[in-house]
Design a protein around this nucleic acid. Structure first.
Lengths: 119, 119
DNA sequence: ATCCCACCTGGAGTCCACTCCAGGTCAACG
DNA sequence: CGTTGACCTGGAGTGGACTCCAGGTGGGAT
C-alpha cells in the first residue's frame, strides 16, 4: 500500500496543503495517518476520497453537504441507498446549473451580436 | 417612460432590495433617480441593465469585472469593441464551466452506477 | 388623524471557504 | 555541524458578496 506525502497529494489533487489540513480539521477528510515525526502520510483511499471531494466541490456542493455525504460513507454500506439519493439530487442540481448556464450564454451571444450590429 | 418602485424591481429582477442598494453603492448600478421623498424610482434602462447584471452574475462573473463592464458601457459607444471582447472572454469562461460540469457529472453518474451495483 | 408599511442612510455584521501566521520539529544535504 | 526546507499546530485574518440594523421620513389606506 503506497502512501503519499503532503507535497505529493497537493500535486495529485490540486488542493493546497492548507486546504487539506482544513478539510481534515473539519472532518471532511478523516484523520490522516502520521509518520513517527507526526507528518501526514496519505493513503490511496484518501486520494480516492479527495477525488470525490474535488468533483463535488467543483460542481458547487457546499461543504456542509459534503460533510453529510462523508458521514454516510463512514457509517457503512447500509447507507448506500442514501448516498445514491444524495448524489442523484446533486446530479439534478448540476443539470440545472448546466441548463442555466447554457441559457445565460444565449443571452450573452445575443448581446455580442447586438454589439456587432452597431459596428 | 414608466418607472419602477423598489418593490417592483425586487419582484422583476429577483435581486433583494439590499442587493440593489449595494449595487448602487459600489457603482454597479448608476445612481438611481429619486422621487421628492428621496425614494428610488428605477427606469426601464435600470431594469435592462439589471438583466445584464443578473446574467453576468449567474454565470459567475466577479463584481470587479462587472464594474469594468459597467464603466465601458458608461464611457460611450467607442468602447463597443472592448465590450465585445470582454463578453467573448466571458463566454469562453462559461463554455469552460459547462464542459467542466458535464465532465464532473460523468464522474457522479459512474459513482451512482457503482453504488447501484453494490445493492 | 393615525397608523402602518415601504422607504431612506451609514455602517456594522455574517457566511463561506479558505489562507496566512508564529513558533516549533525533524531529516537530509553540503 | 549548520542550514535549509518540508512539515507540524492552534488560531487569527482575508475576500467576496451580500445582509442586517438602528434610527428616521413620508405617503396612502382606514
Amino acid at each position: 500500500m503506497s502512501v503519499y506525502t503532503p507535497a505529493e497529494v497537493v500535486e495529485e489533487t490540486g488542493f493546497s496543503l492548507d486546504t487539506l489540513r482544513y478539510y481534515e480539521k473539519i472532518g471532511l477528510l478523516e484523520r490522516v495517518d502520521r509518520n513517527a515525526a507526526g507528518q501526514r502520510r496519505f493513503s490511496e483511499e484518501d486520494i480516492g476520497w479527495l477525488g470525490m471531494v474535488r468533483c463535488l466541490r467543483d460542481t458547487g456542493m457546499p461543504i456542509a453537504q459534503m460533510l453529510r455525504f462523508a458521514e454516510l460513507v463512514r457509517a457503512g454500506d447500509h447507507t448506500i441507498p442514501d448516498r445514491i439519493k444524495l448524489l442523484e439530487e446533486h446530479d439534478h442540481q448540476v443539470r440545472g446549473q448546466i441548463d442555466n448556464l447554457a441559457e445565460r450564454q444565449r443571452y450573452i451571444h445575443n448581446k455580442i451580436s447586438y454589439y456587432r450590429s452597431l459596428l
